[in-house]
Structures are given as structure tokens and as C-alpha cells.
């Protein structure tokens, strides 16, 4: 199928409710209000953004830079959420969102992100589509299993997907 033309736009306090709508529609779990509160305050439009198609926000990615627990002083990019409304899937929107974050890393590789080593996320063990998406398109590798990561959904376990960036 033909890819859809997509624009990116920032998430801010004025439109964060749209992120909530997208997430509610995409994910089986409900994010806490504090998540949206943080998103409303976020200033990093490179890591957190909407994908607009024909004027409507139809997908969003929210990522952040966080310290790596096992390697002091080194950081990683953590994808908190990536969602595209069901009706708009399989038309390249998710890929464009992930690519745009990876592109951002590339452009800041020796600058702001010089201490970033990898990009990672959690994925529910049953979510083979997502594992395929990240694995085949971007070369993410399946890491360790985290048991009982989720509280209210079944199965509660997840894998870590990660990709070395340097």
C-alpha cells in the first residue's frame, strides 16, 4: 500500500489530550495522568511528536533520554510509547516516527547525544507484530524477558528490544 504523507508536530499542554486519545485507542493499558502531565511540559519536539495525516494527529511517538543503569555516565534513548491509530496502520507512519528519532540521534551523535549508546523499549511478550516491526525494519534485537512488568494486562511479561547505536 502507498505510504501516507505525514507531517510532524510537537506535543504541548494545548494538545496533549490528543495524545491521550491516540494512546487510549492504541494500547491496552492506561497511562497515568502524570505521564500526560510530563508530556505537556516536555519541550523536546525531536523525541516526542505527533504524526499528522490530512490535518489530524493519527500517531505519536514519545521517547526520552535516560541514564543506563549498568553503565554510569552513559545514556540511552527509551521509547515510552509509539502508537498509530488502527485505521492508519501499515502505511509507513510508525516507521517514519521511529526513523525521525533515529535521524535525530544521527544528527546529534557527536553533539548533545554523544553519550547515548543505545535505543531500547519494552514490548509485551505477546506483541509479535511490534517485535517484527522493530526487528525487521530497524534491526532491534530481542533482549531479556522481564517478568510481571505489566500489572493489569495479560500476559504481564515483556521483552526488552534494543539496538546498539555505536
Amino acid at each position: 500500500m502507498r505510504d501516507l504523507y505525514v507531517d510532524f508536530g510537537m506535543i504541548n499542554a494545548d494538545n496533549v489530550e490528543q495524545l491521550r486519545k491516540i494512546n487510549q485507542s492504541c494500547f491496552p493499558l492506561t497511562y497515568a495522568d502524570s505521564f500526560y502531565g510530563d508530556m505537556a511540559k516536555n519541550k523536546d519536539e525531536k523525541l516526542c511528536k505527533f504524526a499528522y495525516c490530512n490535518g489530524f494527529a493519527v500517531g505519536a511517538i514519545c521517547a526520552r533520554v535516560e541514564p543506563m543503569p549498568d553503565r554510569p555516565g552513559r545514556n540511552r534513548i527509551y521509547i515510552m510509547t509509539l502508537g498509530v491509530l488502527a485505521a492508519y496502520r501499515d502505511r509507513g507512519i510508525g516507521s517514519k516516527l521511529v526513523t525521525s528519532v533515529l535521524d535525530h540521534f544521527e544528527s546529534e551523535k557527536d553533539g548533545k547525544m554523544s553519550n547515548v549508546d543505545e535505543i531500547m523499549l519494552h514490548v509485551q511478550t505477546s506483541n509479535t507484530d511490534a517485535m517484527k516491526f522493530y526487528g525487521e525494519k530497524f534491526g532491534f534485537e530481542r533482549g531479556e524477558l522481564v517478568e510481571n512488568y505489566y500489572k493489569r494486562i495479560d500476559p504481564p511479561h515483556c521483552y526488552i528490544l534494543r539496538k546498539k547505536l555505536r
Binding site: Q18, K21, I22, Q24, S25, F56, A57, V58, L85, A87
Partner: peptide, 11 residues
Amino acid sequence: INKCIDHTPTA
């Protein structure tokens, strides 16, 4: 219109 909202809840 409910169908529309389910389809694209951000509009």
C-alpha cells in the same frame, strides 16, 4: 459520527 470518532479520535 461515533464511527468517525472511533476511527480518528483526535479530530
